[in-house]
């Protein structure tokens, strides 16, 4: 359905010109982000449709984490827009972005180490007056391990358990879009497979997912579409199948030697 991205012919044309596969829920439009004088994102355009799993691929320093941090309001774009359901949300502080329905499991998991598993999950629901029971049950169903460990200090959990907690905590805020920053980082292959299958399940239950990954092969198998970032720009985009078949992607991100 979608094609390899056609470069914007003209910045002034209707932004809706590029036809996204489904109703766009989250849109990044010509987003430029700087760290001081250093430009981290050079006008990227990314669309995430309602109900999709979209992956951002790219090497270290390509701007994947910067993209998620900007969506969550931890960074403000110098120019360009972030839109949720057509409404601009760039420049809004993080705690308001969460309330609009964007949850994030940040890079490095960042669980609160001296809080219990349950307290961490409760923090995820901080925006609600009281902790929603249905959400807590859903998270415990997805991650039975978290239920077993609910009174344990989060800092004492294994890496995989901390990742589950970080995802579960983000789900507690009942997000419409879940941003996942490298959920496979530093985890054993078996745990990675488990986490990826849970991400699939979360998506099947109706949550839109924007995933950042270096583990391209597995991420693409799971995704509907993907974007490849290189030094702050979108180099390629398309359906997961298209990218999996693309020789450049195969060589650079799927670890296949330059055979030809």
């Amino acid at each position: 359905m979608s094609t390899i991205e056609t470069p914007e012919v003209n910045g002034l044309t209707q932004p809706a010109a590029a036809k996204p596969p489904v109703t766009p829920l989250l849109e990044l439009h010509e987003m430029h982000v700087y760290y001081g004088a250093i430009q981290a994102l050079k006008g990227i355009n990314v669309t995430v449709g309602e109900g999709e799993i979209v992956t951002l691929l790219g090497a270290n320093g390509a701007g994947k984490t910067t993209t998620l941090r900007t969506i969550s309001g931890l960074l403000s774009p110098r120019s360009g827009e972030v839109r949720l359901n057509g409404e601009r949300i760039d420049g809004i502080p993080p705690h308001h972005v969460v309330a609009l329905g964007i949850g994030q499991s940040p890079e490095g998991r960042r669980v609160f180490p001296r809080m219990t598993v349950l307290e961490n999950l409760q923090m995820g629901a901080y925006r609600f007056k009281s902790v929603p029971k249905a959400e807590l049950e859903r998270v415990y169903e997805l991650f039975p391990r978290l239920h077993e460990r609910r009174s344990q200090q989060a800092g004492t959990l294994s890496g995989g358990e901390q990742q589950m907690l970080a995802i579960g905590r983000a789900l507690m805020g009942r997000p419409r879009v879940l941003l996942l920053d490298e959920p496979s980082m530093g985890l054993a292959p078996l745990i990675v497979a488990q986490i990826f299958s849970i991400i699939k399940e979360i998506n099947a239950q109706g949550t839109t997912v924007l995933l950042v990954e270096q583990n391209a092969a597995q991420a693409l198998k799971l995704s509907d579409r993907a974007y490849v970032l290189e030094t702050g720009s979108v180099m390629m985009s398309g359906t997961a199948g298209e990218l999996l078949a693309d020789p450049r992607v195969r060589e650079a991100y799927l670890g296949e030697g330059a055979g030809a």
Partner: peptide
């Protein structure tokens, strides 16, 4: 414990 992540929690 982690101000930035607290912000992400709302």
């Amino acid at each position: 414990q982690d101000a930035e992540t607290a912000g992400l929690m709302g």
